[in-house]
Amino acid sequence: MEQNINLREYLDILKRRRIIVVIIMVIFLLLGVYKTYVNYVSYVPTYKSNITVRINTSKNVGKKKKSENDEDNNQSSPYSTYNVAMNQSIASSYKSLASSPNVTNIIASSLKVSSAEVGSISVSQREDMAEFIDISVINRNKEMAKKVAKMVPEAFNQELIRLVGFDCVEVVYEASDSSLIGRSRDVTLLKSAGIGVVVSIFFVLLAECLDTKIVTPDDVNKYWNYQLIGTVPLDKEFSKGKHSKK
């Protein structure tokens, strides 16, 4: 029962201070509309191209005829347990090199563009096949996204040769055609409305706390602990000045 009474009190407070609520909400909604418009005008489409590579430490080993007595041939097989474990280890430890500044600089130098024009490169390792690495390139230029994606494996391979001495990056799936990244839903206006509600409630409660005027009979009991004995009804006709005309 107490909770219902408190809720009604808060609703009465908001009703009395509705001017504050309206002003603050209008301000924040206008700011939200302006920010949404700015986001719409400044939106630049971006494109994404994907390529998949595999770490294969035996990619340059010549094919040999299988022999039951040839143990070296077993180790040189890309599907041997030894090579699979090594490939997965290298992929886990060095996959971040594909998106490193060095790789970006190598690609930028080859394309004769600045590093900023290369765009964003992201990598992810597959859980089911850990030696496979998916590489995504995001760029504002549709053609540039695919060009960069094509060049990432070679630049990545150069970095691996320099650091661990392995020429082991091979392309599994060629770079895909650049696709437009869908524009995310702009919720700026909803956020502004939510902030406006919070701020308006804060200022309403602040104004109520700073207001020491006696407005209701409950205020008398609240401040002086006096019990209400009775009330005098308001004569609306007298308040409008009708009695003065008689």
Rank of each mutant, 00 (worst) to 15 (best):
L205W: 04
I181N: 02
T188I: 10
V197H: 02
D186G: 11
S178Y: 03
A175K: 04
Y173F: 14
V197A: 00
I201W: 03
S184W: 15
L190S: 11
L210H: 01
R185C: 13
V197Y: 02
R183K: 14
L189D: 03
V172D: 12
V197T: 02
L189C: 06
G182D: 09
A175R: 02
S200D: 04
E170S: 13
K191W: 13
L189F: 11
V198W: 04
L180I: 06
G194K: 09
R183E: 13
V199N: 02
S176A: 14
V172N: 12
K213P: 00
G196P: 09
V197C: 05
C209W: 15
F203T: 02
K213A: 12
G194V: 05
S200I: 03
L206K: 08
G182L: 09
T188S: 13
L189E: 06
C209I: 08
K213S: 15
T212R: 15
S176P: 12
K191A: 11
F202N: 02
V169R: 13
R183F: 11
V199Q: 03
S176W: 09
I201N: 08
V204P: 00
F202C: 04
L210P: 00
S178T: 11
S200K: 00
L190W: 13
F203H: 02
G196A: 07
V198Q: 04
L205K: 03
G194W: 04
L189S: 11
D177W: 12
F203P: 00
G194H: 08
A175N: 07
T188C: 04
D186N: 15
L206H: 05
K213E: 15
L180E: 04
V169W: 10
S178R: 02
V198R: 00
L206Y: 06
T188P: 09
V169F: 08
D211H: 06
E208Q: 11
L206N: 06
G196S: 03
F202V: 06
I195Q: 05
L210F: 10
A175F: 13
C209S: 13
S179R: 00
A175M: 10
S176Y: 14
A193S: 11
F202W: 09
V204R: 00
D211T: 03
F202E: 05
I181W: 04
D211Q: 09
V197S: 01
V197I: 10
V197G: 01
A207Q: 08
I195N: 09
G182F: 06
E208V: 03
V197R: 00
K213W: 06
L206F: 11
C209H: 12
V187H: 15
E208W: 07
S176V: 15
I195D: 04
L206A: 12
S184R: 15
V198H: 01
S192T: 10
S200Y: 08
G182C: 04
V197N: 00
L180P: 01
E170Q: 15
F203Y: 01
G194D: 07
V204K: 05
V169A: 12
D211N: 08
V199H: 05
V198G: 03
A207E: 08
G196Y: 02
K191R: 14
L180M: 07
G182K: 06
L210M: 07
L189N: 05
D211C: 04
R185S: 14
L190M: 10
S200R: 01
E170M: 14
T212F: 13
V199K: 01
S176I: 15
S178V: 14
K191Y: 12
V198A: 03
R185T: 14
A207W: 07
V204I: 07
A193Y: 04
V172H: 11
